[in-house]
Computed example of a mutant assay.
Amino acid sequence: MMTPIRIGTRGSALAMTQTTSVAERVGDLAESSYELVRVRTEGDVLKGSLSQIGGTGVFVAALREAVLQERCDLAVHSLKDLPTLPAPGLTLAAVPEREDVRDALCARDGLTLATLPDGARVGTGSPRRAAQLRAARPGIEVVDIRGNVDTRLGRVAGLVSGAPGDLDAVVLAAAGLRRLGREKAITELVDPAVMLPAPGQGALAVECRESESAPGLREALTSYDHGSTRLAVTAERAVLWRLEAGCSAPIGALARVQGDELALEAVVCSLDGRSILRLNRTAPVGDADAASQLGHDLADELLAAGAAGIAPLTT
Rank of each mutant, 00 (worst) to 15 (best):
A104Y: 05
Y34I: 09
E188F: 05
L177E: 07
G89P: 10
D166H: 11
I5H: 06
L271A: 13
S51N: 12
A220Y: 00
I251R: 08
P96C: 08
K80W: 13
A253N: 04
L264T: 01
I53C: 09
G286R: 02
S49H: 08
S51D: 11
A61S: 12
V142Y: 05
A305C: 11
T234D: 03
P127Q: 08
P192S: 00
L133V: 02
R128F: 10
A232H: 03
G123N: 05
V190L: 15
V190Y: 04
A304Q: 11
L294C: 06
P138V: 05
A93M: 04
A185S: 09
A136T: 00
L279C: 07
E35A: 13
G11W: 10
I140H: 10
A174M: 07
D289V: 14
A61D: 11
L85I: 11
V37W: 11
T151E: 15
I53V: 15
N148M: 13
L29H: 00
A205I: 03
G125T: 01
G295D: 07
E207K: 11
A283M: 05
G27T: 08
V142R: 03
G110M: 01
P88L: 13
A30T: 01
A175E: 02
I251V: 15
S275Q: 15
G202Y: 00
G43R: 08
A15P: 05
P215F: 09
R155S: 14
A308P: 02
G125Y: 04
E188H: 02
P86K: 10
V206R: 06
D168V: 04
L29V: 05
I5C: 08
T315V: 13
V171G: 01
G43Y: 09
Q201V: 06
T3N: 13
E141V: 12
C208T: 15
P96I: 01
R134W: 06
V194L: 10
V143D: 02
P199W: 00
N148G: 15
V142N: 05
D297Y: 10
R230G: 01
L85V: 12
T19C: 13
T17Y: 09
R6L: 14
G295H: 01
P197H: 01
R38P: 13
Q258E: 15
S213L: 14
R155E: 12
S275E: 14
G139R: 04
T3R: 14
G123Y: 02
A304V: 07
A93H: 00
R152L: 07
P83Q: 08
T112V: 00
D297A: 14
